[in-house]
Write a protein that binds this DNA or RNA. Structure first.
Lengths: 253, 253
DNA sequence: CGTCTATTTGAGCCCCGTCAAAGGCGGTGG
DNA sequence: CCACCGCCTTTGACGGGGCTCAAATAGACG
């Protein structure tokens, strides 16, 4: 695997190669996405708001962002996180309006890819199309797991589950060094993602620490005992669909 | 619009025509799905279990089913309902294994459509393909709304929201007569869908009744005050994407 | 008419929410 | 270099929404 981390789309390639082995041509077609406009968003600013008409496909190239929904009275639910290599809404440009918002957590850069460029990419490189479809199916699967998380798990289990998921996802795109990763989420972000109040999240976090499962200091997260953390949070990897064994989609050229 | 309710795929056509106006050829291509094997599932039986390899695309033709996930200790979360005209997992056959289960609530009949039949349908009838994609995007949107529902709304708001959603969906495929519809869900089902215990759901349901918003007796649900119910549950239709106004996908033949 | 399932009720408790305020920590400017 | 400021984290006290356990009642079905 080439060290493509320095490239704008390197994380994306790492991302997709979890699912499908890409050919050199596939990879260079993906590299071409770099020719799309590169945009920047300030930390804590909105990238798109609910109600707007979606026009482009966004590929995050640096920074963390989130997808969220809010209620008129101010309650907010984060329904997903984006890290480099993630697409925000591959297909939503078909719809009339956004049903959710996308907000930057850190400063974010992203490629704003015109829909027809995506369409051309997936038709000329069908294996890339398959990988993108897979990516999307995994995203739906993650949404369902979050529903299970918030609907059935306790606050402690929820938080542990979220830590494991984010660790695994960051590791997959080369954003972890050993068991440690840069972790820009505030306790308020974690609270909005897990559906508890910030105050209670703080107490829950203290409990995870007390159990010696993680360390979180100065925007660095370290997983101290991954197995125990998984067990505590009833974590089942299946939903991430990292089961490569049946690589019926491998490139053979 | 022809009265296609008697047909096995009539509900599906009604479903898709919310998004896209189909041509006669599109409709007859959809009618051809009837040639796929028709299967039956007993009430309260599993149609697919988590972990199995998905092989067919299922189109519900009668009865109610649900998508759910469970934890080793027995906790269960329903993450979605299927009514006639709904596809269970348009694309999951690409994945190695199911990340959730599908269970029949009532006796259910469904068409088991081979993946290649679906692929042929969407390539020969692109407008149908667009409609199916739209259908899928709406499903994702509904998942996100459920996350907001469970994460941020109170038990009373959650239940009200679920009633409104199910009413609107049933009405869209002709399963409501006025404000009344056949409603096979038990209080236990409603509890598992809203993430509360059956006992608390019962008390919450009594409160919705006490406010004169619904009537639920003998498997019949009547919405007594739709506007008030929407307001109480902070219901915002946007997420259902029923905004036809920009019908850029209309058939013109 | 008996059995099984679904609904309803009660009592007690606990997880988590609310309100309020105190520390900590990084950034900025004087 | 320090003082100040804003944001984030932490703590305390208290209240309430929802959970648990248990049992009674009502329906559905054969």
């Amino acid at each position: 695997m080439p060290d493509s981390n320095l490239s704008l789309v390197g994380n994306l390639i790492l991302n997709l190669e979890r699912y499908v082995r890409l050919s050199a041509d596939d990879r260079s077609a993906l590299e071409n996405l770099k020719s799309s406009p590169l945009c920047e968003a300030k930390a804590r600013s909105d990238i798109v708001r609910e109600g707007q008409k979606p026009t482009v496909v966004r590929l995050v190239t640096s920074g963390w962002a989130c997808r969220y929904k809010d209620l008129p009275d101010g309650r907010r639910q984060i329904v997903g996180f984006f890290i480099p290599g993630d697409f925000c809404d591959l297909n939503v440009y078909i719809l009339q309006q956004m049903d959710h918002s996308i907000g930057a957590i850190t400063p974010v850069t992203y490629l704003a890819i015109p829909p027809d460029v995506m369409e051309k990419l997936t038709t000329t490189r069908p294996r890339v199309g398959q990988a993108l479809l897979w990516h999307q199916l995994v995203e739906s699967s993650v949404q369902r797991e979050w529903l299970l998380n918030i609907g059935q798990r306790s606050a402690l289990e929820r938080l542990g589950h979220l830590f494991v998921e984010l660790y695994l996802r960051c590791r997959a795109v080369g954003m972890a060094r050993g068991m440690t990763l840069d972790f820009p989420l505030t306790q308020n972000d974690l609270a909005e993602a897990t559906g508890v109040t910030p105050v209670h999240l703080n107490r829950t976090l203290q409990e995870v620490r007390r159990q010696g499962l993680i360390e979180l200091r100065g925007k660095k997260l370290t997983i101290l005992d991954l197995e125990q953390l998984k067990q505590m949070s009833l974590f089942n990897e299946n939903y991430l669909h990292l089961d490569h064994e049946g690589r019926q989609l491998d490139a053979n050229d």
